[in-house]
Amino acid sequence: MMPRVFAASLIVALIPVVSVVPLLAWGAEPRALDVRAERTVWDSVYTAAQASRGETLYVKSCARCHQVSLAGADESPPLTGGAFMGNWSGLPLADLQNRIRTTMPSDSVGIYNRQLVTDVMAYLLKANGFPAGATELPTDTEALRGIMMRASRP
């Protein structure tokens, strides 16, 4: 299944790679495709207090690899900027939550519960310049499926 916002014929015509379509069919393709109704990280989806909790946890548990600056290091990717946004933009926040929850921290996977992981995500949203609001980012994965990461304001 490929993103339906693009016409298949257009892709085949412009990208001379026969493999493009099957390659993407296996990927984590965008799930919310109705752009008009989409809720995004620009819609004030976390609170400042939650981001502050997340920051405390980040500094304690994540910064030893990803750095206090979030710039990453030899073994750890940056958590701001083009690489981070490129990976996650166009995908629901549920994917980011799953990735953190099931792979981090890499030397003791799974020690943080959903609340802690989600608080760190709130901090990452703040650090990437997305606005805070009155409602906390929900911990429920299904709820996070309804919030899209978007690098640019829709």
Partner: peptide, 23 residues
């Protein structure tokens, strides 16, 4: 060790080093 003074606030983080989301 590496770190940022706690009260440095807005300068913190890669977010503080991006300009309107740009490098």
């Amino acid at each position: 060790v590496t770190g940022i003074a706690p009260a440095a606030g807005g300068g913190r983080g890669g977010g503080g080093l991006s300009v309107q989301g740009l490098s």
